[in-house]
Amino acid sequence: MERDVLLQLSHISKRYHMETALKDINITLHKGEILGFLGPSGAGKTTTIKIITGQLRQTSGEGKILGVDTTNIDDSIYEKIGVVSDNSGIYEKMTVWQNLSMFAKIWRVPNKRVEETLRQVGLLEHKKKQAGKLSKGQGQRLVLARAVLHKPRILFLDEPTSGLDPSTAVAIHKMLLDLKEEGMSIFLTTHNMEEAAKLCDNVALLYQGKIVEFGPPQEICLKYNKKKRYQVLLNSKKEVVLEQSQETAAKISEWMANDEIQRLHSCEPTLESVFLQVTGSALNI
C-alpha cells in the first residue's frame, strides 16, 4: 500500500542574484520516515528547509507540504510542523517549564503534555531550573522538546546534534527513532554521515545545491561497492585487505578452519566515501 506523502519537492531551484543555491531538487517524504539531507556547509541544506517551511520562496519548481503549496502556506502550518534550526534559541531567563508552557499556550496543548515531553527528554527534574543554566546538551534537548510538544506531523531538524557530546547525541538519536515509531516524519539535515546512516530511511547527498545521490543509505553504499574487499585481522596481529576472488575465499576459509582470524570485516564504502567518490569533495567540512 502506498504510504502517505507528507512532503514533495519537484524541480525546486533557488537563485540569489547570480548565485544558484539549489538546482532541481526532487524529494518525497512519507509518513513515519526519516529523510536525511547530507552535504557540506553551504550545500543548500538550510535553504531547502527554509523553502519548505515558508521562510523563503523558491525561484522555480513546486513544493507541497501536507498537501499545501509551499508558496501559499501561512502561519497556521507551524501548528502541524516542528522546526529546529541549527541555532534555535531558548528563553534563558525563563524556567525550563515556562519555556514549554508558553508554547503549549500558543498551540493549545495541555500541561500534561508539557510534563510528558519533559519526561521524554529527561528534563522533568530540571523543570524549575532557569533555562540559561542548562548545559548545552540539556538546552538542545529542551529545543527538541519544544519542537515536538504539539506532536507535529513533520519535524524539521537542522543539524540537531552539531557540537554536542556523544552521549547527548545518542540520547537525541534514540528520541528521534522513538518519534519515528510514533509515526512522525522527520526531515533531517546533517553533515554527519554516521548519524544519517544510523537514523535515515532515505538520504539525499547534496553538493553545490544539487542532489547527487538519493536512496536508502545501505543501498547507496552497496551501489558503489564495485570492488568487494575484506579486511582481516589475524591472531598474529597482521592486518590484511583482500579483494574478492576464488583465492581469497579459499584463504579466508583456511584461516577460519585454523582459527587464525581475530576480526573480519567487509569493506563496502561508507556514505562519506560515496560522497567523496561522487563529488570529489569531503563531507565533513
Binding site: S76, N87, I90, R146
Partner: peptide, 14 residues
Amino acid sequence: EKHTLRVLMTSSIT
C-alpha cells in the same frame, strides 16, 4: 540575539 525570535515566528504566531 538569543535566536528566539525565529522560534516564535515559526510557532504559528502572526
